[in-house]
Design a protein around this nucleic acid. Structure first.
Lengths: 345, 345
DNA sequence: GACGGAGGTGAGAGCGCTCTCCGAGCACCG
DNA sequence: CGGTGCTCGGAGAGCGCTCTCACCTCCGTC
C-alpha cells in the first residue's frame, strides 16, 4: 500500500533508453529534433518505468506552471445556489483541460481573504487568473491588477479604477433586456414593469439600462428592486402590484426572480400570460422549464462564456512576449443573447 | 505594467538582512531556532523586498505541495444544478485555506477523463485527493487507490473493490430516511410511498433501505424510482398516484424530487399535508423553503461534510510517517441528520 | 578558570528538470 | 575527394529552495 518505490526521474529513463537526459526531455516535450527510432526507444522506456515529469522541477526552470487560478469573490452563498457560476466553471474546466492546464480554485469570503488571494496571485504560483468579481465596490480587481499577472474577468467588472488592459467576457445584458422588453411591447403590452437584480452588480445595472432604452419614459413606479433571488422577486412583485395594479407585463432580471414573481401573480389571482406576461433572463433550464407556465426568457450561453474566458487567458501574451511587443493583448468579448419563447409571454 | 523586476530570492533577502540563506529559510518557515533580533531583521528584509517563496523550488526538495485535488466525477450537469456539491466545495475551501493548502479542481466528464485524472494524481502534483464519485459502477475510486495518494471520498463510494483503507464522509442517509418515515407514521399515515433517488448512487440506496427498515412489509407498489430531479419526482408521483390513489404520504429521496411531487399532487387536486403528507431530504434552503407548502425535510450539514473531508485528508499520515507506522489512518465519518418540520408533513 | 554542552548560524550539496552551448556526424557541393 | 553547412545528441550549468552538518559562541558547572 505504502509503496516506497521512488518515482522514476528523467535520468532513470535516459539510462534505460540508453540516451542522455536531454534527449528524453526533448521527447517528453514533443519529440522535435529527435530521430524516430530514438523517440520510440525513449517512449518505451517512459512507458515501462511509468515516468511522470516532476512539475515542480519543470516549473522551477521554465517559470511556467500550466495552472490558472479561478477566483470567486462572492461573499454570499448565493453564487452557489445559482447554477450560473457552476456552468461557467464547467466551461473553464473543459477549455483548460484541453490545454493541459490545471484549475486552482480560490473562493473568497469577506475582505480578509482579499490579501490572501492577492499574495497568492502575486506569488507566481499560476500563469494567470480568471476572476469573478461581480460587485461594484469590490477592491479585488484592483489588487489583482497590481499583482501583474494576466487576468480575464467574468462579467464586466464594475470598478472605477484603471480600465486599461482590463479584459472581460460578458453577455450582452443590455441588448438582451431590450429584446425582452420589445418582445413584451410587441405583444401589445403597455404597462411593462421591471424587477431589477442586485444593483451592485453590473449585469443588473445593464439589464435595467436595457429596459429603460425601450421604455424611454416609463412610469418610475413600474421599476422595483430585486436581488436575483426568488424571495426578492416575490417581494418586488407584491410591491409592484400594490403600486400599479394595472400592469400587464413584467420583465424580471433573471429566471429565479421571475419564478418568485410568477408565484405572487398566481396568488393574486392573475393569469399568466393572459393578464400579465412575464419574461426572465438566463434561461436556467431547471428553473425556466419548470415554472408554471414555462418561462419565456433571454438565453445566454453560460458555459461558452467560461470557455471563452479560459481561451482568452491562455492566449494572453506571456511576460517575455509582452516585453518584446509580440502578441497583442486580447480584448474583451460581449456574447449575444437570444430570446427563448415559452408560455409565459 | 510589464514589470521586468525579477522576483527576489532567498539569496537576496539574506544579503539584505546580512545573514545566510539558511537563516532566512528558517525564519520564513516559522523562525524556530533563530534569535529574536535576527528574526526581526530578516522579516524586515522580507517585507521591504516583497519576498514570496517560490513554491516550485520548495516542492522540489520537500516533496510536499500544500495542494489538494478535488475530483468531481459527475458526468452530468446535474451536480451543478444542485447546490449540494457547491456547498461541500465551500466547506472544503474554508478548511484548506485555514491550513494554507490550495484547491485544485478536477472535473471529469466521461471515461476519457479518468485516465487523465489518474495520471495527474499519480504524478505527485498534490498531497491528497478529495473525491466525489457517486456512481456505483465508477472505476475512478479504483484508479485513484492505485495512484497511492491519501484520499477521502465524499459519500460512501459504491464500489466493490478493495475496501481496506477507504475513508469517506457521509450523511446518515439510512437513519435520516428512517426518521422521515417514522415521522410520517407518527402522523397516523399508513400508506406511505417512497420516491427513490438515482439508484446507482449509494445515498439513494441507503435512503431506500431506511424506508424499508420502517415499512417492513410495504406494498412494493408504493415505491417508485426517481432520479433526484424535479422532473423525475413528477414522473414518479404520477406513477404512484395511478398505482395507489389511496396513498396518504410520500417520502421523497431529496427536496428537488419532493418539489416535483408536490406539483403533481396539487395538479391532482390533493391537499398537502391534509390529503398527502410529504417529506423531503437535504434541506436545501432555496428549494425547501420556497415550495408550497414549505417542505418538511431531513437536514444534513453539507458544508460541514466538506470541511470534515478536508480535515480528515490533512490529518492523513504522509508517506514517511506511514512508513514508520506513525499516525493511524483516519477512519470514515457518518454525520447525523435532523428532521426539520415545516408545513408539508 | 577550564571544560562540556546547548543553542545559533553558515556552508554546501543536491531536489529533477530545461536549455544553451558544442561537438560529432552526415549529406551535398565544388 | 575534401570542404562546407546543417542537423542531431550530449554535457553541464543552473532554477530557488531545504536540510544536514559542522562550526562557533556563550553559558553553566565543577
Amino acid at each position: 500500500m505504502t509503496d516506497t518505490a521512488p518515482r522514476p526521474t528523467l535520468e532513470a529513463v535516459a539510462a534505460r533508453a540508453g540516451v542522455s537526459r536531454a534527449t528524453v526531455s526533448r521527447v517528453v516535450n514533443g519529440g522535435d529534433g529527435v530521430r524516430e527510432p530514438l523517440v520510440a526507444r525513449v517512449r518505451k522506456a517512459v512507458e515501462e518505468l511509468g515516468y511522470v515529469p516532476n512539475q515542480a522541477a519543470r516549473s522551477l526552470v521554465t517559470r511556467r506552471h500550466d495552472a490558472v487560478a479561478v477566483v470567486v469573490a462572492e461573499p454570499e452563498t448565493r453564487v452557489f445556489a445559482d447554477p450560473f457560476f457552476a456552468l461557467q466553471l464547467r466551461g473553464i474546466s473543459k477549455e483548460l483541460t484541453a490545454h493541459d492546464n490545471q484549475l486552482v480554485l480560490l473562493l473568497t469570503e469577506g475582505r480578509d481573504d482579499h490579501a490572501r488571494v492577492a499574495r497568492y496571485l502575486a506569488g507566481g504560483h499560476v500563469d494567470g487568473a480568471l476572476v469573478f468579481s461581480l460587485h461594484l465596490d469590490d477592491p479585488l480587481p484592483g489588487l489583482i491588477q497590481r499583482a501583474g499577472i494576466p487576468t480575464v474577468f467574468g462579467g464586466r467588472p464594475g470598478w472605477s479604477g484603471d480600465r486599461r488592459g482590463v479584459v472581460y467576457v460578458d453577455s450582452d445584458n443590455r441588448g438582451g433586456a431590450r429584446d425582452a422588453v420589445r418582445h413584451l411591447a410587441g405583444l401589445g403590452r403597455t404597462r411593462i414593469a421591471h424587477i431589477t437584480g442586485a444593483l451592485d452588480q453590473t449585469s443588473a445595472v445593464d439589464r435595467l439600462d436595457g429596459y429603460r432604452d425601450v421604455m424611454v419614459d416609463a412610469d418610475p413606479r413600474l421599476i422595483a428592486e430585486g436581488d436575483f433571488t426568488p424571495a426578492g422577486g416575490e417581494g418586488a412583485m407584491r410591491e409592484l402590484l400594490e403600486r400599479c395594479p394595472d400592469l400587464d407585463a413584467v420583465f424580471a432580471a433573471n429566471d429565479l426572480t421571475a419564478a418568485g414573481a410568477l408565484r405572487v401573480l398566481r396568488e393574486s389571482g392573475r393569469r399568466v400570460p393572459d393578464d400579465v406576461a412575464v419574461v426572465g433572463f438566463d434561461d436556467m433550464l431547471p428553473v425556466a422549464e419548470q415554472t408554471d407556465p414555462p418561462l419565456t426568457t433571454v438565453r445566454q450561453d453560460i458555459e461558452e462564456m467560461g470557455r471563452l474566458m479560459a481561451r482568452l487567458l491562455l492566449r494572453a501574451p506571456d511576460r517575455r512576449a509582452a516585453e518584446q511587443g509580440v502578441g497583442a493583448a486580447p480584448s474583451s468579448v460581449v456574447l449575444p443573447t437570444t430570446l427563448v419563447r415559452r408560455a409565459s409571454a
